[in-house]
Design a protein around this nucleic acid. Structure first.
Lengths: 231, 231
DNA sequence: CTCAAATATCGAACATGTTCGATAATATAC
DNA sequence: GTATATTATCGAACATGTTCGATATTTGAG
């Protein structure tokens, strides 16, 4: 697993395969690009690919892992520079879509695995996945590091639901056929503002009773999670 | 396509295949049940299955079509008997899950196709699918036939978003591992009440401005649709 | 009932993701 | 530098969804 174990040759071949796969996936889509074609393009035997990736889907996963890493890096900057909740959310989600854009043509496969409850890679699955945990941690930091003063009950659930919100945006994006995904960016802009408004409203004492019922409901249907260390 | 064209023998064989497939899908799951096993169980040659179903996924689709038909039938009763919006929604969604329960083990495949934008069967795809249209029409009737007095802007979008809400419930249900999907039913109960509350609140003149901004936003990101005849 | 057209069935073959066992290349210890 | 262990690569084979062409069965007109 650890990259330190990788021999230079292994790294080179892995990259050759990824380059070949990207080319073919973009050109013909995931299903139409066969492992044999990828092998030819990468100048290796089909069987060799399986030395570097457990399955064809894992090749796509590798691209997504790359996006995630770039995104994590970008978020460090964003979250250091910006303290307003709304702007933090806007930039983080915007960046995610922007980084994923080159892979849009075949990113539907990811939601394919995401929808399968049996699949351990599914972000909704009960078992914890490192991928989801990292992504969730990011949203926790997005919330906790912001300048927003949140009621305790809101603070308890906000990060998790912003994560879910992000999933919804991605689902919309995958089906968005407008040029350059303009509609998705527009949706982000509108919904981020809306969320900000809701968060502000949620602090009004007048509606506290309703809000508390609401957040209690939202907490109940979140997947169980271990208690986290304070902050 | 039309069933009137089906010869008796065709109907019998089709049923044999569906019975065999159901048995094996439930027993071993969709992926583990092979076409050859289904063929053996149904006492036909593998190739014969393809005379009745274009692909393996279409077998699952057939089960879903069955559920949809039963549900449509059940909804006629529900919507005739009950006029309160909340109760109509509760019963319609509850019934859907209840009817789908026998197929839960392999119903993830449906969301698999649902997530693929290329797939014309996807309920989110741009092209209209008869399946989605029927389902949407049901929710339009659910809203328009209810006793609720709705502001025009709410009325314009409510049905579509209740349909989307139902999709969310199904997604939750697919990943719900609690016994008898208790958590899903609980979620339905809670969210239906919440929706009712929101609909009631939406009629308060005090918050009309906010509501109108909100519904305008929601309308913008709904897929384009032809104008419907009045009612 | 007869027979041609339509339909249903089948065995064999194909395409593609994947596995296996053997071989070659590389890294590591001395 | 040599021997050994580890790693990478490969050709061949396998499993499974699917297609093809031929054959059998059913349907429907006269």
């Amino acid at each position: 697993m650890s990259k330190s174990r990788m021999t230079p040759k292994s790294i080179r071949t892995r990259k050759k395969i990824l380059d070949a796969a990207l080319l073919l996936f973009v050109e013909k889509g995931y299903d139409q690009a066969t492992m044999r074609q990828i092998a030819v393009q990468a100048n290796v035997a089909p069987a060799s690919i399986y030395h570097h990736f457990p399955t064809k889907e894992h090749i796509v996963q590798a691209f997504y892992d790359g996006v995630l890493e770039e995104h994590t890096q970008a978020c460090v900057d964003i979250l250091r520079r910006e303290t307003r909740l709304e702007q933090r959310l806007r930039e983080v989600v915007h960046k995610k879509i922007a980084l994923a854009e080159p892979f849009k043509k075949f990113s539907g496969v990811l939601f394919r695995v995401a929808s399968d409850p049996q699949n351990p890679l599914s972000p909704f699955s009960a078992q914890s996945s490192p991928t989801r945990d990292k992504s969730l941690a990011q949203f926790r930091q997005l919330v906790s590091g912001s300048s927003a003063k949140l009621p305790a009950d809101v603070d308890l659930i906000l990060a998790d639901y912003l994560w879910l919100y992000q999933m919804g945006i991605i689902l919309y994006w995958i089906h968005d056929t407008s040029e350059h995904s303009r509609k998705t960016y527009r949706l982000i802009e509108r919904t981020v503002k809306l969320i900000q408004t809701l968060v502000e409203l949620s602090s009004l004492p007048l509606i506290a009773p309703f809000r508390k019922k609401f957040t209690k409901l939202m907490l109940e249907f979140l997947p169980d999670r271990e208690k986290q260390a304070g902050t």
